[in-house]
Design a protein around this nucleic acid. Structure first.
Length: 109
DNA sequence: ATTATGACTTAGG
DNA sequence: CCCTAAGCCATAA
């Protein structure tokens, strides 16, 4: 049985996010079986900053707001990376979030 | 064990 | 969609 930590589970999901797509912390939390631990997902991301396998820039809050951009070295990095992948970002928010939203449940569960 | 913290979410206005 | 208040939960000290 997997004795993976909460963080590792989050990483596994975030790692599978396709390019040009974004998802929310709550969706990830729910996918790993901790719908109420959405905050922990972000917390885990903070630890995942050093991992290239975890595209944290593809994880936004439910409003499509780039909440984590402040934690990147450069505040423009996150928005720039998303834009480079085809995601329209404006004023630190993802435009047409519904269009870019990716549900981990559809691929994992 | 207890306290403090936080890249969130939901509900109500 | 924006704002405020309250809830929730894993990690660190």
């Amino acid at each position: 049985m997997e004795e993976k930590s909460f963080f590792e589970r989050v990483y596994d999901v975030v790692r599978q996010i396709p390019d040009g797509k974004v998802t929310s912390y709550g969706a990830i939390a729910k996918c790993i079986g901790a719908a109420k631990s959405a905050r922990m997902v972000g917390y885990a991301m903070n630890s995942a900053k050093g991992l290239d396998d975890v595209p944290a820039h593809r994880v936004v809050n439910r409003n499509g707001l780039l909440t984590g951009k402040s934690h990147f070295g450069d505040h423009n990095a996150m928005q720039q990376m998303l834009a480079a992948e085809g995601v329209k970002v404006k004023d630190n928010k993802v435009q047409d979030l519904e269009k870019y939203f990716w549900d981990p449940m559809e691929e994992i569960k």
